[in-house]
Design a protein around this nucleic acid. Sequence first.
RNA 1: GGCCCGGUGGUCAAGCGGUUAAGACUCCGCCCUUUCACGGCGGCAACACGGGUUCAAAUCCCGUCCGGGUCACCA
Length: 493
Amino acid sequence: MELDRKYFEEMESRIPKGTVRTRFAPSPTGYMHVGNLRTALYTWLIARNAGGTFLLRIEDTDQGRLVEGASEVIYRTLAECGLDHDEGPDKGGPVGPYIQSERRDIYGKYAQLLVARGHAYYCFCEKTEGEETEGFEKTDDPCRALSPEEAQARVDAGEPYVIRQKIPREGSTTFRDAIFGDITVENKTLDDQVLLKRDGLPTYNFANVVDDHLMGITHVVRGSEYLSSAPKYDLLYQGFGWEIPVYVHCSPVMRDAQNKMSKRHGDPSYEDLKAQGYLTPAILNYVALLGWSPRGELAEQEVFSLEELAHAFDLAGMSKSPAIFDIEKLTHFNALYLRAMTPEKFAQTARPYIRQTVPEERLSAEEIAALLQARCERLTDIPEKVAFFQTLPEYDADLFTNKKSKTNPEIAKAMLEAAVSTLEALPDWSQDSIHDGLIALAERLEVKNATLMWPVRIAAAGQAVTPGGAVEICHILGRDETLRRLRFGLGKL
RNA sequence: GGCCCGGUGGUCAAGCGGUUAAGACUCCGCCCUUUCACGGCGGCAACACGGGUUCAAAUCCCGUCCGGGUCACCA
């Protein structure tokens, strides 16, 4: 079989040089789990930190696993997160196509090139079904010894075949990882992995090497589960005579000490987290720190915008050990981001959640939001917290008893009666006048503020714990509703 | 099982031969206060184990144990 020199020269000529190029190469499963997102983030950060190029490649090597709309999840997630790519299926670029299923013919040609270079061979053996897992000795594949002419003859005769990598039997291979350093393995522990399958499609490992090279990828970022196949990658690059990229193997994100995060275990995807009321920047911030930490001056900093991350990011800060995903810490970051919003922005964000349980427009979403900002960690906490504004909950009279506020049913009754007449007589219903009126009343009655405020708040809200105090709640409810609720409370005493 | 990687409080995580072993989350206490929260202050809690090397080891070496990954015509 003739090798088409021109083809390879043409492919080579398209490869951009002299800049950092990274790629995020997900399989379109329709599910972006947290580990995936983190890998995408690190990959993006490496490119942006160096002023390089970040590209997206979809690894959809068929295998019947096609999920409708799965690529859209990827595009949407990257866009929402601000991980913009410079090249990709939707953007084009010099080294396309960027979808593996559209690159099929490429792999076959390169597999043949590798055979010609003596680093791969045709194998005509029957498919092995992994039934010999017990025997550790890898018996040499007889096809490895076939002469090129013999192999070619059988191919020409239409015999089915795969193409396998020809791993040297002797010696060892040392590869370098940016995080793990130099790792050496004996070549004899490596197997002659299949490069091109019987159906002519490449295996994942082969497609990756070919694509990464042809796309000019300088930093291969991937999960540490690929660490053990890295020496085979090196041998492949060497076999082709290609420059070996920098490997960046990221340790996994775990759900607990022994299991990775997984859809199967019901661990949340990026979209799930958003649905649970988490903010995108908070998720990114948390996830970035799960496996990377800043050095030097920034070692104490925990809150990072994407821009700040892009500046601060360095490979030296990457962790070698797996990290357990802690939803509580994510929640903490989320609370931080919620509080850091401007009141206007927060109100806008919170409004739909408020309106879930407080549809009545008369009850100001802005005012309710103001009470909420320091008091919620997730947006989804909101509906339940504010429902009492819309509907007075059923409550028991013993709520009026509170030791610290020095109230009991008897005192509460007196306080509510006094509060009702004070509030009725207020010249206007501004927050200030409610506040001043009640404080003055407490003073006049010679009780501590809490003794008056507690029963008022309980009657106004119908529950022991509320966002905001008596004054704010009364103001939001309005005079009529407040008085109605206070009188109703009085009825219980 | 072979090979590879990892192991600092419950979790994330500084540390790079000499530190009272940072910081954050969680939890607990106190202050603030009109409940709760926010904020402030304080506290509990760690170098897996055993040998070396060294004046000196969480840091370097070896072994053990534990955990993970990988050994597919899956990605």
